[in-house]
């Protein structure tokens, strides 16, 4: 059996125009043949995609060609749970299998507590019920958990080298 050639998707122009590439990417992923990889060209490292496609079983391999020139190869069936060196992954076990793809994204790195928590709760209120927010934080937002619980939202936490990746789904 031969593996099909990777399908290439160039979202650099779209990104420079300030567009929203995620629906486009997800659509392309749906069109992939079984076993086919996706070659994505972007202007930055698409960190949130790693989590999104990782849950669909895609592993990723990123190459940084130039300042605004990234090439990432997403290969199906190669997703390995992220295991930063020396650190045990700390993941709250919420199954996210049936969650929709994130419809909003926040990069909270470089913000001092409690600002990440304020932003997440602000943003969450602007999502529809059941929608998912993706966020990257500098550290685990411990004070956020009880607030989310009180609001009936669910959170999935994933500690990685580049920050703590959060998927938060607004309650129904």
């Amino acid at each position: 059996m031969t593996t099909p050639e990777p399908l290439t998707l160039d979202i650099r122009e779209e990104l420079r125009r300030g567009g929203e590439p995620l629906p486009h990417i997800m659509e392309t992923v749906r069109q992939l043949a079984p076993g086919q990889a996706l070659r994505l060209l972007a202007t930055f490292e698409p960190l949130p995609l790693y989590a999104v496609l990782g849950r669909k079983g895609f592993g990723h391999q990123a190459t940084h060609h130039n300042v605004e020139d990234w090439e990432v190869l997403f290969t199906p069936g190669t997703a390995v749970p992220e295991q930063p060196k020396g650190k045990k992954p700390h993941t709250t076990t919420v199954s996210t299998g049936d969650w929709p793809a994130p419809s909003a994204f926040l990069d909270n790195r470089g913000l001092e507590p409690p600002e990440p928590m304020v932003r997440i709760l602000d943003s969450l209120e602007h999502l529809g019920h059941g929608e998912v927010l993706e966020a990257i934080n500098e550290r685990e937002p411990v004070f956020l958990y009880p607030e989310l619980e009180a609001r009936g939202a669910a959170i999935h936490t994933d500690k990685r080298d580049d920050g703590v990746h959060l998927l938060i789904r607004r309650g129904a």
């Binding site: 929203e20 590439p21 995620l22 994204f105 926040l106």
Partner: peptide, 16 residues
């Protein structure tokens, strides 16, 4: 009060 939607909230994907 927070403007709607918050300016830092990027719908659909990460802001470049």
């Amino acid at each position: 009060a927070t403007p709607i939607p918050p300016p830092y909230l990027s719908r659909g994907g990460p802001a470049p």
